[in-house]
Nucleic acid binder design. Structure first.
Lengths: 235, 235
DNA sequence: GTCTATATAACGATAGAC
DNA sequence: GTCTATCGTTATATAGAC
């Protein structure tokens, strides 16, 4: 069981690994470099990391609106004025966070679509891959989910479109399985939405899974196996 | 299919019907009567309804923190000072909303536990009943889900406990079915959490279901039938 | 000595509360 | 409508690196 996710770690998610740690913050830096006044990447990256991580800590605990820039200043150790060398405005900070995550997911989805796998392996890859991504970028996912309302309409719509595109990934795999006679399913769209809902729980209900001592691998396996039962998979 | 939910409308949810419309607002009034300065129930109930519905409109659109009492005053037509005859404070307003909903759900869960049904009927009743409740009290559920962070720790914990108690309802029914040899399930707790996740989607992802033109009955049926597939129900 | 990065302090607006 | 606190924001001053 412990090896289960590794065997499905397809190429798209090796990229995810590459974006852990310092590499992630360099990506963040490069993505809104033009909006900031700091020249030196060394300084910029270090402080960006401080600012983003402090934002996650404060906003994910009590809400982004409830977090003041003075709180953020205190938490990061960067002065009020100094913060504005790194962010355009408070709202801009939330916007950048959503933008970075969406851009990142978009790339992974794009690569997943190019993978040639049979329907069962495809579904397993999507599920274990997404749980894995949520695990790595937990505070990012949680922030974007809870603070979406605070962003402008255009950005909200882009986020919803991304979720629909993710659902479509699942629907396509299910449809492929039906075509091959492997699966039976009346409402692929509804089933896909259910899977997405269960995946999102991995960041939404961390408290519950910690309480029940459920591991990432166990959870991904649970979603996958129940999905196969729903699809009447003839193994 | 259209009749599906009706056949499972057990007594606990007839209560839910009784708390639609005006009766609901009288309940709200009676629940925090002592905190307000308005004597006449007639006036109080009418304005409470205005205040709560305006809060849902504003807070569910852009967040409770982002809603100012001036917004609320404008939306309700009640002056700034006037509002304080009905609510103790802004935070108190959110607290009361969560309290009313939790109290309400608690009663329904309590009655559900007293119903004597076979495991399959029990699961169907819980699922269709909960979707039905969410349908009626949609803005309440959505508000409490999204604004839970803003409440004090004690109240947050009570909300989480309630969710665990709801999961337990499902787990008990699943376990009963296993005992009777009807069901097979390795991880009842995880399966219950998945069902809860799917139920909560009914208020969290209204945009998606409207886009896909999925009805409440259709959705409840989808959750229930896939649950039976996961339980290897031998019909 | 020059340029980048940080800190200070105060502005105007607006918040919740009464 | 008023009051006080605090918000996001910015102009300005200072400090530090090379």
């Amino acid at each position: 069981m412990a090896e289960w996710p590794q065997e499905t770690t397809i190429s798209a998610f090796k990229r995810a690994w590459a974006l852990e740690g310092e590499a992630l913050w360099y990506t963040v830096f490069s993505m809104h470099q033009e909006k900031m006044q700091i020249k030196s990447p060394k300084v910029a990256v270090a402080n960006l990391q401080k600012i983003f991580e402090a934002t996650f800590k404060l906003a994910n605990a009590h809400g982004f609106q409830a977090m003041s820039l003075r709180d953020l200043s205190r938490e990061t150790g960067i002065s009020m004025g100094g913060l504005y060398a790194y962010i355009g405005s408070k709202n801009d900070l939330a916007s950048v966070i959503e933008g970075v995550l969406r851009n990142y997911i978009d790339k992974v989805i794009g690569e997943l679509m190019n993978e040639e796998l049979d329907p069962v392996a495809r579904l397993r890859a999507i599920i274990s891959g997404e749980v894995f991504m949520i695990q790595i970028l937990n505070p990012w996912y949680y922030f974007c989910y809870m603070e979406l309302k605070g962003l402008d309409r255009e950005q909200q719509q882009q986020a919803l479109d991304l979720e629909l595109r993710f659902d479509s990934l699942l629907v396509d795999a299910i449809r492929a399985g039906i075509k091959q006679g492997q699966f039976t399913c009346d409402k692929p769209e509804l089933l896909a939405a259910s899977i997405t809902a269960q995946l999102q729980q991995w960041h939404l209900k961390q408290w519950k899974f910690k309480l029940q001592q459920v591991s990432m691998e166990e959870y991904a396996k649970h979603i996958f196996e129940n999905l196969l039962l729903c699809l009447n998979n003839r193994r």
